[in-house]
């Protein structure tokens, strides 16, 4: 009984629930679940191009999910991956369109710009928490909206491409594209970078003194504080690094998929990534698996809408319900001196 409860209360139960709810959503839309699932899976795994697109979505989710994983493990609710992703993408797009050197080195510069941009965005929340005890949940959420406003302003004003009709930056020079992994698809080597980041994150959390202190801060903040962990510094570092990983993701979307920055960069990857991180049980390697699962949903959702006439937003309802189910697990210890919310 308790084994069953544990399994069903965890990621496995959430995935079962996801399928059940997807079926309900299809029935509500007047579509046979068989047809709906067929469309979903053909649209996501039915061929080389579909698989490539699923992996594109996987990559876009994996970076912010890893960032969220790091923050949650430190006991910090970073709900601002969306904004960090946008700022990272903006930094890479702006730099690539206007200042990038036309050398193979450019791509590293752009990725670094995304990393730094997202890091600054996460770091603001970290600084506000460390310095003023401002709750990171509210600050990261507010910063999401600020990021969008900033991006909107820049791409429709100072950074707007001179010949573009919509709000977007000048395209990057081809020399600063991320190399494509599967020819004639949108899949770049970003997926390799993302998996590399997951492996590094796992090593960082599991083996290093920094990771040890970070996990202690999340599991038992009072014990960490009392045993030599500088909590304000840890808060600042964790939220900065968390934002940086998400920002790196934004840069890979710009350099690998869009080849320019626009405000349609993310259809809410930063929020879906919360579900990804939780389904992956905040373990970097399982988060990779979870990102693939959600990549199937994201890529297949569009096909489902096109082929079976089920609105793709059903996918987001399912994600939300998965998060609700997984909330039954305890992710972050209750702090004696939490920031007020």
């Amino acid at each position: 009984m308790s084994y069953l409860k544990r399994t069903l209360g965890g990621p496995a139960g959430a995935i079962l629930l996801a399928f059940f709810l997807a079926a309900v959503a299809m029935l509500v839309a007047g579509v046979s679940p068989l047809d709906g699932f067929e469309a979903l899976f053909i649209g996501s795994l039915g061929g080389r191009n579909q698989i490539a697109e699923t992996l594109v979505q996987t990559t876009a989710l994996l970076f912010p999910a890893l960032g969220i994983t790091l923050a949650f493990r430190a006991g910090l609710f970073n709900i601002g991956a969306e904004g960090q992703l946008v700022i990272g993408g903006l930094a890479a797009g702006a730099l690539g369109a206007h200042f990038a050197p036309a050398t193979p080195l450019a791509i590293f510069v752009l990725l670094a710009a995304g990393f730094v941009g997202g890091g600054i965005w996460g770091g603001i929340a970290g600084w506000l928490r460390a310095q003023f005890n401002a709750n990171e949940i509210i600050s990261t959420l507010m910063l999401n909206f600020v990021a969008l406003a900033v991006a909107n302003y820049l791409v429709s004003g100072p950074l707007k491409a001179s010949n573009a009709s919509g709000a977007e930056t000048t395209p990057l020079p081809a020399s600063s594209y991320l190399p494509t992994l599967i020819p004639d698809t949108r899949l770049s080597i970003a997926i390799v970078i993302a998996i590399g980041a997951a492996i590094v994150l796992r090593w960082l959390l599991k083996r290093t003194v920094f990771g040890y202190e970070l996990r202690a801060s999340g599991e038992a903040p009072d014990a960490a504080r009392r045993n030599g962990v500088n909590m304000p510094r840890m808060t600042l570092l964790a939220l900065t690094l968390s934002g940086a990983i998400a920002g790196l993701g934004g840069a890979t979307i710009v350099t690998g998929v869009l080849h320019r920055f626009n405000t349609q960069l993310s259809p809410g990857y930063g929020y879906t990534a919360i579900a990804v991180a939780l389904v992956g049980d905040l373990n970097p390697l399982w988060v990779c698996v979870a990102a693939f699962g959600f990549g199937i949903l994201e890529a297949g959702g569009l096909a489902m809408q096109a082929l079976a006439d089920v609105p793709k937003d059903a996918i987001h309802v399912i994600e939300g319900l998965i998060i609700l189910v997984l909330a039954a697990r305890r992710y972050v210890a209750t702090r004696a001196e939490a920031a007020p919310i």
């Binding site: 003194v209 040890y212 202690a216 599991e219 038992a220 009072d222 014990a223 960490a224 045993n227 030599g228």
Partner: peptide, 24 residues
């Protein structure tokens, strides 16, 4: 510390991992 549960130990961690706490 006074309160071993809250301030002394990370209760979800193994004895080995807790041995390092404060000495990391």
């Amino acid at each position: 510390p006074q309160d071993r549960h809250r301030e002394g130990l990370v209760l979800n961690w193994s004895i080995v991992d807790n041995t390092v706490l404060g000495r990391q």
